[in-house]
Write a protein that binds this DNA or RNA. Structure first.
Lengths: 341, 341
DNA sequence: TTGAAAGCGCTAACAT
DNA sequence: ATGTTAGCGCTTTCAA
């Protein structure tokens, strides 16, 4: 049975030295793995480290490794994973370590990570998610290490950012549906605190207006970019959106689950309802119907973001950049042409 | 233009103090965010920190946050992601930070992470991948923080581990095919250095033997648990495995891409070839044919692993445990019953 | 709000 | 292979 002492005050290398009857130098050698120590001595030290529950932590020389924090909102989203993959490749080449932190789209977790990044001496932060709370903005402002945003903007801060033109993408998708003869078009949008989702929605709205189509408020349904939203919207679509022939989805995951769910109601895509979406993850091709989608290359975005980070770290005076990619449309089978009835 | 001095020797808090004309105490206050500092003073310090490219690193007081390293071989594999999700939930509840590191199934990267975990003072390591190199075993042996394995065993070390019974799972899958009348059965296996994959393969082999079926060596094809293997095996199956009516896949990702690829050759599942696999990620249900699969609940495995870690950290003298789950079979449409011809 | 100085925990140089 | 000791970089206390 271990006594309670180890909880009252922090255990130091000194305590280990006293307990084991060795010097602090020897203990240090064992812990750092540098210098020659006899096997038995080493084992003795380890024994007391465990017994006294010593943490090799406070006021020590930290590693000189360059490490980057990658903050993502949903680790299961393949689009984000491709960004991560792209960034990871660049960092590997440069000998940097990348640690991924999943916020689960929770604003306070996100804040906690950013402040932890400082405490734990990270050299840089890449954020694929940014929830613009007052606290987060403040943290980012005071932050000492470089921050690069991917797929997000923060208008109030001058940070590096790599994005696609989401407004234009939303516009393109909607325009495409209109070209194919669709008039009553619904939209399943993403979270309100995501600039990407908001821009896509604006693109949708402006396109409708430009082509003289009316927009009913009930035609816009609030989603969260995950499977469940697609399922919920399928119910909503069947019950409330009679006469609508097409839907623009803020991402492909929601579109894919909509397609499979709506088939349970006997509706087929694209015969009964046309579908267009955003992103081009495997979700668009693995289902029964290939989904027409607005494409942005996430792996390249990740690479570019990491490249900017590498440059920031080697040259502190680098200018802040915004890299904006144009989106592309990939045609598959999920949109019906109803002009030639 | 900044002079070159900052490259010759490490910049310390002292240099910042000198450059800014302030004391080290004030600089420290700014960097740590503790204590009161006038806004202008703080800005002055930040200015010199950036100008001299100072790194808030060496011999400093590190954060007291408890942080866990999660090492995974393939960040895009949904099965691993579910393990991560499960672990993440437990760590969040306990106020621990979890950092995910992707090894890309590369042995030396894996070793580098484990050694980095020590240098960077991680409190624990969870490994979803273990490539049993001599170096890694040595590192794990010398390691001071707790290590918990998930979905993996290392026979030569006494480490905590959470697994399913892969041998039994492989046996179950093969037995099921035999029950349905299949006699010529192929296997697309996983990497040789993965105990999980090897156990599944052994299960396959033993089941065949138990039921008096002969095993041709050409019926076992080496895969890597990713999409590409499934595609490559589809070619192989069509060209070289004439007369085979069923395949057991080491995971569902390879099975799913096999099914879609083989349809290009005009073969249908399960009409022309039956498919059974391992894991139950969305890959088994999102395709045209629901895949019959051997199931293990990855989220629970992650939770249990994290639970063991939490206990290890609060009680250094905890006994090492191996938790082994029995696998379950989920029947879908990918296996044809050919007994009643 | 700031500085001087003492102190902390660890490391490294040197001696044995 | 180990101990002694000086020293490093940062934090904290105390005084102003």
């Amino acid at each position: 049975m271990v006594c309670e002492e180890d909880k009252i005050m922090k255990v130091t290398i000194n305590d280990i030295a006293k307990a084991s009857g060795l010097s602090t130098a020897t203990v240090s050698r064992v812990l750092s793995g540098k210098g020659n120590v006899k096997k038995e001595t080493s084992e003795l030290v380890v024994k007391y480290v465990k017994e006294l529950n010593y943490k090799y932590k406070s006021t020590q020389k930290a590693s000189d490794d360059t490490k980057i924090m990658m903050i993502v909102g949903d680790i299961k989203n393949p689009f984000y994973l491709s960004i991560i993959q792209g960034a990871s490749n660049v960092f590997n080449k440069n000998g940097y370590k990348m640690a991924i932190f999943n916020s689960n789209e929770d604003a306070s977790t996100e804040e906690e990570y950013v402040s932890f990044a400082h405490r734990d001496r990270f050299d840089g932060i890449i954020m694929i998610t940014v929830t613009e709370t007052v606290t987060l903005i403040k943290l980012l402002k005071e932050n000492l290490c470089p921050v690069v945003l991917v797929n997000r903007f923060v208008r109030s801060l001058d940070l590096d950012a790599v994005c696609i033109d989401n407004f234009r993408g939303g516009y393109m998708a909607t325009h495409y549906l209109i070209q194919k003869g669709h008039v009553r078009i619904a939209h399943l949008c993403g979270p309100e605190n995501s600039t990407a989702s908001q821009d896509r929605k604006r693109g949708f709205e402006v396109a409708l207006k430009d082509f003289g189509l009316t927009l009913e408020q009930k035609a816009i349904f609030q989603g969260d970019l995950k499977n469940e939203s697609g399922l919920a919207f399928a119910d909503y679509f069947v019950n409330k959106l009679n006469g609508y022939t097409a839907v623009f989805f803020a991402n492909d995951i929601m579109a894919a689950s909509f397609v499979s769910k709506v088939s349970e109601y006997g509706l087929e895509v694209p015969k009964n309802v046309s579908v267009i979406c955003f992103d081009d993850t495997p979700a668009t091709t693995i289902g029964k119907v290939g989904l027409t989608t607005v494409y942005q290359d996430p792996e390249t975005m990740g690479q570019v973001a990491a490249g900017i980070m590498v440059e920031n770290l080697s040259n502190k005076n680098a200018v802040k950049r915004k890299v904006i990619y144009p989106p592309e449309l990939i045609e598959r089978e999920s949109v019906a042409d109803i002009t030639k009835k």
